[in-house]
């Protein structure tokens, strides 16, 4: 074999190169091609902006009552109100538009903080169970099953009765109860990731177990984690609205959309917009979060092929 051409040196550079975009470039490309993701993202950003800029946007203090100016009509019934109270006032004369704007703050606050609490609990439990398996997994599985056997709604109502109703109590109760899906999903994904060769390589390299979990496994389950987080956030927002509607959630006069629905109940036939407006807001927020989550799943999880 004197033919040099057939035995290229493997020292030095080899010629083959795969011209593929990097994962970040691919992700970006898919994000901008996914309309449900984009639509969800735009609506969420809008609502977020409204919530953050509430003091600037709201024409009135949402708590300021004016009994002489109760239940005024919105602008489409009464053009005069357009400047003062564009969406009219409620039964104690508070500006409805301002209450809706501040309501976005409450809903997002509940959604985000519940998600953070339950996400932390669920991820820690799920990843631990999935990574260690065996007895640890058995114990955590038992905890998950115990949690699943408890009706969130009834326990939440009981807790509110015991500790008194307030925003903090609602957030804590929901946060401490909505971690089950995080735990279940994280557990199964971690189990799959644990057996991959790169985890074994990291162990053979001498990496400590916490390092492997945080640096090797966690980045690879992040996509699924975000998807679960959006679903749970929407869920928490709806639960808060339901609790507030029944009077077990946020207490008056806090401007919560659920509470506003409750207060509007008796005027359903005379002033239907009182019910329709917060309902629509709630609908769009939850829809947007779900669209975003769905899109995110398509964008991140099709990584394989």
């Amino acid at each position: 074999m004197t033919d040099i051409a057939h035995t290229p040196r493997s020292f030095g550079q080899i010629v083959d190169e795969v011209l593929e975009p990097s994962p970040m470039q691919k992700l970006r490309k898919r994000m901008f091609g996914n309309y449900s993701f984009l639509a969800g993202l735009v609506i969420i950003l809008l609502i977020l902006a409204v919530a953050l800029l509430a003091p600037l946007l709201a024409p009135h203090d949402p708590l300021e009552t004016n009994l002489s100016n109760r239940l005024t009509n919105p602008f489409w019934h009464d053009a005069k109100t357009l400047e003062e109270h564009p969406l009219g006032t409620d039964k104690v004369g508070r500006d409805y538009l301002s209450r809706l704007i501040y309501g976005a703050q409450i809903s997002l606050l509940i959604g985000v903080s519940t998600m953070l609490i339950s996400g932390t609990i669920g991820t820690i439990l799920g990843v631990t169970a999935g990574y260690f398996g065996g007895r640890v997994d058995m114990v955590i599985n038992f905890i998950i099953n115990t949690r699943l056997a408890m009706p969130v709604f009834l326990v939440a109502m009981a807790a509110v009765v015991a500790f008194g109703a307030s925003l903090t109590v609602v957030i804590l109760v929901l946060g401490l109860f909505l971690w089950d899906r995080f735990a279940v999903v994280m557990r199964s994904i971690t189990m799959q990731a644990r057996d991959l060769d790169y985890v074994k390589a990291a162990r053979a390299m001498g990496c400590s177990t916490p390092y492997i979990i945080v640096r090797e496994i966690f980045p690879n389950v992040l996509g699924s984690l975000t998807v679960v987080a959006t679903v749970e956030m929407a869920n928490a927002i709806l639960l808060e609205a339901a609790l507030s509607f029944l009077g077990f959630g946020v207490q008056a006069p806090t401007p919560s959309w659920g509470l506003m629905l409750n207060e509007a109940r008796e005027y359903m036939f005379f002033s239907p917009w009182l019910l329709a407006l917060p309902g629509t807001c709630l609908f769009f927020l939850v829809l947007a979060i779900n669209l975003f989550g769905d899109g995110l799943r398509d964008v991140t999880l099709e990584k394989g092929r």
Binding site: D197, Y198, K200, M205, G206
Partner: peptide
């Protein structure tokens, strides 16, 4: 142990962490 001995695995698709 890691300083003395290191592995090379069969499947180069699963032995490298895709996020790094």
């Amino acid at each position: 142990v890691a300083r003395r001995i290191q592995p090379i695995f069969q499947d180069p698709y699963s032995s490298l962490n895709p996020t790094k």
